[in-house]
C-alpha cells in the first residue's frame, strides 16, 4: 500500500515540476495570463490618460508646475476661434456622413446587380483610394486644386466657362476640399459594408415585391433600404466619430494654420493649443468637450435612425 502511494506522488512530481508552474498553467489561471497584455495596456494607455485628461482640464499645466484653476479652461473655450473650429467640424461631419452613406448605398446596389459586368474590377478599383495615406492624397489634391488656371480643377471649370477659383483660400471651397478628400478615401470601404449587408437581404422579399408589381425604384426604397438599416446605423456612427476626429484632412491643405481659420477643426485646435502653444490644460479641456459632443451627437443620431426601436 505505502510504496505504491509514494511512486504515485513521485510520478505526479515528475510531471509537474513545481507548484507555481502547475498553478500558472492551470485552466483557471491561463485565461488571466492571456488577457494580461490588455489589462496592462488598458490601465496605462487608456484609464490613466482618460483620468489625467479630466484632471488636466482643471489645471494650468506649466513645465515643472501645475496649478488647479477650476473651470477657467472651460470658460476660455467661449471664444470665436473655438466656435469656428466647432462650426467647421460640424459642417464637415454633416456632409461626410450624408455623402458617405448615400453614395455607397447606391453604388453597392448596382455592384450587387446581375446587370453590371466586371464587378470585381470595379469593387477593387473603388477600394484603392482607401490604401493611400491622407498625406499622399493631400499632395495630389493640392496639385489638382492648385491656384493657377492650369491646375486640373480650374481647367475643368474653365471648360464650363467658370472662372478659376483659389481653392485653398475660400471658406466654402476649403470645406469642399476636405469633404472631397475624405469622401474619396472612404467611399470604397463603405461600399463594402453595404455590399456585405446586401448579401443578407432575402430574395423572397424581392420576389414578393415583384408579385406586387413594384418597380426597381420602389424595390430600392421599400425592400433594400429598410433591410440595410443596421448597416446604415453602423456606417453613419463611425462616420460621425471619424468626422469629429478629423485633423489630417485639414493639415495637408494648410498645416497647422489656415487663412482665417477656414480649415481649423476641433482636433486641430487641441493640437494648436496643447502642443504648439504648450497649453496642455486648455487642450485637455477642448478634448473633454469634444468627447461630450460626440457622445450627445451619437445618441441623437441613433435615436434619429431608430436604433433603439425594436422592429
Amino acid at each position: 500500500m505505502e510504496p505504491s502511494t509514494s511512486t504515485d506522488t513521485q510520478r505526479v512530481r515528475n510531471k509537474r515540476p513545481s507548484k507555481l508552474t502547475a498553478f500558472l498553467t492551470s485552466r483557471k489561471i491561463a485565461p488571466y495570463v492571456f488577457v494580461t497584455p490588455f489589462v496592462i495596456s488598458f490601465l496605462l494607455l487608456f484609464l490613466y490618460p482618460m483620468i489625467q485628461a479630466f484632471v488636466m482640464s482643471f489645471q494650468q499645466v506649466l513645465p515643472g508646475q501645475t496649478t488647479f484653476i477650476g473651470f477657467d479652461n472651460y470658460e476660455r473655450l467661449l471664444n470665436p476661434t473655438f466656435y469656428r473650429a466647432l462650426l467647421n467640424t460640424s459642417v464637415y461631419v454633416l456632409f461626410t456622413v450624408l455623402i458617405l452613406v448615400a453614395a455607397p448605398v447606391v453604388l453597392a446596389v448596382f455592384l450587387n446587380s446581375k446587370l453590371l459586368k466586371f464587378k470585381n474590377f470595379f469593387r477593387a478599383s473603388l477600394f484603392v483610394p482607401a490604401l493611400t495615406s491622407v498625406i499622399v492624397a493631400g499632395v495630389i489634391f493640392r496639385m489638382m486644386f492648385g491656384e493657377s488656371d492650369s491646375a486640373v480643377a480650374n481647367e475643368v471649370l474653365g471648360f464650363f466657362g467658370i472662372s478659376p477659383i483659389d481653392w485653398r483660400y475660400g471658406s466654402v471651397s476649403g470645406m469642399f476640399l476636405m469633404v472631397l478628400l475624405a469622401s474619396w478615401r472612404w467611399m470604397g470601404v463603405n461600399i463594402l459594408y453595404f455590399l456585405a449587408g446586401l448579401q443578407n437581404v432575402s430574395d423572397e422579399l424581392y420576389e414578393a415585391a415583384d408579385i406586387d408589381g413594384a418597380n426597381p425604384i420602389q424595390k430600392f426604397f421599400y425592400v433594400t433600404l429598410p433591410s440595410l438599416k443596421p448597416v446604415v446605423i453602423f456606417v453613419s456612427t463611425i462616420s460621425i466619430i471619424n468626422g469629429f476626429r478629423m485633423f489630417e484632412e485639414s493639415f495637408v491643405f494648410w498645416q497647422a494654420n489656415s487663412p482665417g481659420n477656414i480649415g481649423l477643426t476641433v482636433v486641430g485646435y487641441i493640437y494648436q493649443e496643447g502642443i504648439s502653444q504648450n497649453d496642455m490644460g486648455f487642450g485637455a479641456a477642448i478634448g473633454v468637450v469634444l468627447m461630450l459632443i460626440i457622445f450627445i451627437v451619437s445618441i441623437i443620431q441613433l435615436k434619429f435612425v431608430g436604433a433603439f426601436k425594436e422592429d
Binding site: 485565461p31 488577457v35 490588455f38 489589462v39 488598458f42 496605462l44 494607455l45 487608456f46 490613466y48 490618460p49 482618460m50 489625467q52 485628461a53 488636466m56 466619430i241 469629429f244 476626429r245 485633423f247 482636433v267 487641441i270 496643447g274 502642443i275 496642455m280 487642450g283 485637455a284 478634448g287 473633454v288 469634444l290 468627447m291 460626440i294
Partner: peptide
Amino acid sequence: GRNVLFVLVLFILMIPFEILMLPLYQL
C-alpha cells in the same frame, strides 16, 4: 471578469484617441 473585459474593449473602441493624446504625450 470576461464580460467586463469585453465591454471595456468595446468602450475603448468608441473613445477617440485624440482625447487621450495630450496625457499620453505627457506620459
